[in-house]
Amino acid sequence: MTTVNANEIALGIESFGDDDAPLVLLAGGTTMLSWPDALCERLAAGGRRVVRYDLRDSGESTTADPEAPAYTLRGLAADAAALADALGGGPAYLAGIGVGGMVAQVAVLDHPGAFSALTLVGTRAVAPGPPDDDLPDHDQATMSRLFARPMPDWTDREAVAEFAAAGAEILGDDPVAARAIAARIWDRTPGTAPPIQMANQMGMVFSRLDCRPRWRERLPEIEVPTLVVHGRRNRFFPVGNGEAIAREIPGARLLVLKEAATAIPDAAVGEVTEAMLTLG
């Protein structure tokens, strides 16, 4: 892992594969560890240069004030385009998961020349706040359980890992995997101040971003090959959100993972990798 200066900030990255291979850029949701190690390794084995990166205010990327971010969703999209340019090799294949999927949508719309293909995992086309009337909102019973829990002691690595595992169980994800990832995120977080830990562990900074102007109406402008991946059991962004994106981007392919929720489970890594490699 290292950092690359792009768009006048430092972005934490990790690279897999041959530096001369076609670039696949994986936007974190919010940290790079949202993308499974196994998926990165398989994409690299398929002849790609894979770079996963941390969004601002997470991981090794520039961290300022997660409670009052001085940038917008479009700023994060500009980061992706600048990073692709800094890494070189021509237009990049861009993929985003969760909030990173929102970044990826806007990046391809605002910087079409920077990207050659797009994969969107477990995301939606409106943010923040309530979705459009034709899109399913968060499952309210799940959200009530998720946010009724007291915050952990952010200075306690084990407490944070346990908090993540319990949250994963509520969401329908693998609690064992979530615990391990949370511990790795905690180790990479540049401080134990609650806002910084929350930005890394929960992506709470994203709820404070200015995400205007809307971009859903622009989805038909996307001309690059697009893959939309969504977990059938996703209670945070229910599958209707992914279905809508796939309908509205011309020629997009929809891959629904029947046993997945918000994360890409180990059992689905092979299927997702194959679909991504087939796309471009």
Rank of each mutant, 00 (worst) to 15 (best):
N5E: 10
A6E: 05
A6P: 01
E8N: 15
A10C: 00
L11H: 14
I13M: 05
E14T: 14
D19K: 11
P22A: 10
L23I: 07
T31P: 13
M32L: 14
P36N: 13
L43A: 13
A44G: 13
R48V: 09
R48F: 14
R56G: 11
G59K: 01
S61T: 07
T63C: 14
A64N: 06
D65G: 01
D65Q: 07
A70S: 13
Y71M: 01
T72P: 04
T72H: 12
R74H: 15
G75N: 04
D79I: 02
D79H: 12
A82K: 01
A82S: 10
L83W: 04
A86I: 05
A86W: 09
L87F: 04
G88D: 06
G90E: 01
A92G: 12
A92C: 11
V99P: 04
G101D: 02
M102S: 15
Q105R: 06
V106G: 02
V108M: 08
D110T: 06
D110G: 05
P112T: 00
A114H: 08
S116H: 06
T119M: 11
T119G: 03
T123G: 02
R124W: 11
R124K: 07
A127L: 10
A127V: 08
P128V: 08
A141W: 01
A141V: 13
A148R: 08
D153T: 02
D153C: 05
D156S: 03
R157E: 11
V160K: 02
E162S: 12
E169K: 09
G172Y: 10
D174L: 09
V176Y: 02
V176P: 01
A177M: 13
A178I: 00
A178P: 03
A182Q: 03
A183H: 12
R184F: 00
W186Y: 15
R188D: 14
I196M: 08
I196H: 05
Q197L: 15
Q201Y: 11
M202N: 09
G203Q: 08
M204D: 13
V205N: 07
V205T: 15
F206K: 04
S207A: 15
S207Q: 15
S207W: 10
D210A: 09
D210W: 13
C211D: 12
R212I: 00
R214Y: 06
R214E: 11
E217D: 15
P220F: 03
P225E: 05
P225T: 05
L227D: 01
V228A: 07
V228G: 12
R232G: 03
R232F: 00
R233G: 00
R235K: 15
F236L: 14
F236N: 15
V239S: 06
R247T: 12
I249Q: 00
I249C: 09
V256G: 02
K258R: 11
A260F: 14
T262W: 10
T262G: 12
T262N: 11
A263W: 13
P265F: 14
A267V: 14
G270C: 04
L277I: 03
T278I: 03
